[in-house]
């Protein structure tokens, strides 16, 4: 099928099988930030934003992206532009260890901050509850989201 979607702000048309796994499809188009961690919808490494909501791309098929807006970490900053405040905060706080879960975390955090610019710790934890991290124990990730939130409010 001709799959038309808005990817990171740009209209694209891809050839895809309607039943093709959306994670495979995105990786096939060089969106390497979208990671395979389980393929079963449990780990969150493949998180994307679909019309602004964090969802797991490994559970979606290509056809479900038709006409939708898809955001990946490649699209949260201009290619030559400065990092997104969340990216800066993650790096500064030590919230990135192995980095494999980081793109998914960033997107979940971005979706949260779009609807809730001043989240409590509890709200940050809730928004990130679908993104597993085995390295950090989440402490610095939570701090980083709140640091970024503060900077984005200013």
């Amino acid at each position: 099928m001709d799959l038309q979607l808005t990817l990171n702000g740009k209209r694209v048309v891809w050839q895809a099988e309607p039943g093709e796994n959306a994670l495979d499809l995105l990786r096939r188009h060089s969106l390497s930030s979208v990671k395979w961690g389980c393929g079963e919808g449990d780990c969150g490494a493949c998180t994307i934003l679909l019309d602004g909501r964090s969802v797991r791309s490994c559970l979606l098929v290509a056809a479900q992206l038709q006409g939708r807006e898809v955001t990946t970490v490649e699209g949260i900053k201009e290619p030559a532009g400065p990092p997104h405040p969340l990216q800066t905060a993650f790096v500064e706080k030590g919230a990135v260890q192995c980095g494999y879960c980081t793109p998914g975390m960033l997107l979940s955090a971005k979706a949260l901050l779009a609807s809730n610019p001043s989240p409590s710790t509890e709200e940050v934890c809730r928004a990130l509850d679908g993104n597993l991290c085995r390295c950090t124990g989440y402490q610095k990730i939570i701090e980083a989201v709140q640091l970024a939130a503060g900077r984005m409010r200013d």
Partner: peptide, 9 residues
């Protein structure tokens, strides 16, 4: 239900 991304879908 599940986690945020599941509830979002």
């Amino acid at each position: 239900v599940g986690s945020t991304p599941i509830r979002n879908a």
